[in-house]
């Protein structure tokens, strides 16, 4: 079996005396999509931010399989390297597109930013790639010079995804990617995400409270409560045969139409 892309060992994050998330261990293999579910305040966003380097956990290791040096602990690596990873091999899709986009820069500029950040200095190439990526996320080419503020919520979210995937990352962090979108837009976005993940062979960690999202996208599932992982396993297994009382509650509280 291939080496894991990401290994998380004994991760603890405290906010003062209060536990953000604790005792988290898991492996993520290339091409695998991991869902993290739980109620608000269960520590799932904290965990994601710790993994992506936005927060500094108190204890633990986050080992990432880098292209040049193999497994490296991203928590102890130098900041320039971590920031380089964050704009090349990693991608982070925020719940609110506004947090992940530059609202005063055109859609093309938003997508091109990562390309320019890694040294592309040819306007024609940058623009062609930006248009190509807008097309892949179903935004027509004539919107390339419009600012994200002129886009609908769903389009903003798709733009954010294009902006993140343009440099061909290997690991995508997603924080509630479908939050705040209406159901039909959600469905299209999920469809798109599933396509991209499969097509590019991405590994992804998706934080959500929406079980339908993980059912569609995730291979494996972790259920969190009060900062701890209470259950993990294959998505269908966890959702169809929940073992932990909290997971049973979570699954049974989904409204059926």
């Amino acid at each position: 079996m291939s080496t894991p892309l990401l290994q998380v060992r004994d991760l603890h994050k405290f906010y003062g005396d209060r536990l953000g998330c604790g005792d988290v261990n898991f492996d993520l293999y290339p091409g695998e999509v991991l869902g993290i579910v739980g109620e608000s305040g269960s520590g799932k966003s904290t965990l994601l931010n710790c993994l992506a380097g936005h927060l500094a956990p108190e204890r633990g290791q986050v080992l990432f399989d880098t292209r040049d040096q193999g497994l490296v602990d991203t928590l102890t690596m130098s900041e320039p390297r971590r920031r380089l990873l964050a704009r090349t091999d990693w991608a982070f899709v925020h719940q609110h597109a506004r947090d992940g986009l530059r609202m005063n820069v055109s859609a093309g500029g938003n997508v091109g930013e990562r390309l320019m950040a890694v040294g592309d200095r040819h306007y024609g190439n940058i623009r062609a790639q930006a248009i190509d990526w807008l097309d892949r996320v179903e935004i027509t080419a004539d919107r390339v010079d419009d600012r994200p503020s002129a886009f609908s919520g769903g389009m903003q979210q798709r733009l954010q995804i294009a902006r993140n995937l343009v440099t061909g990352p290997r690991l995508v962090f997603m924080d509630e990617p479908t939050g705040g979108l209406d159901v039909s837009v959600q469905a299209r976005l999920l469809d798109l995400l599933r396509g991209l993940v499969r097509e590019m062979g991405l590994s992804a960690i998706i934080v959500t409270h929406d079980l339908a999202v993980v059912r569609l996208l995730a291979d494996r599932l972790m259920v969190m409560k009060s900062g701890h992982v209470v259950e993990s396993g294959l998505t269908d297994q966890v959702l169809d045969d929940p073992q932990h009382a909290y997971t049973q509650l979570l699954v049974s509280s989904v409204l059926q139409v």
């Binding site: 055109s106 093309g108 930013e113 990562r114 320019m116 950040a117 200095r121 623009r127």
Partner: peptide, 10 residues
């Protein structure tokens, strides 16, 4: 300094 070029791109 990639961001500086975003301004020129715009």
């Amino acid at each position: 300094y990639g961001l500086m070029h975003v301004k020129l791109y715009e």
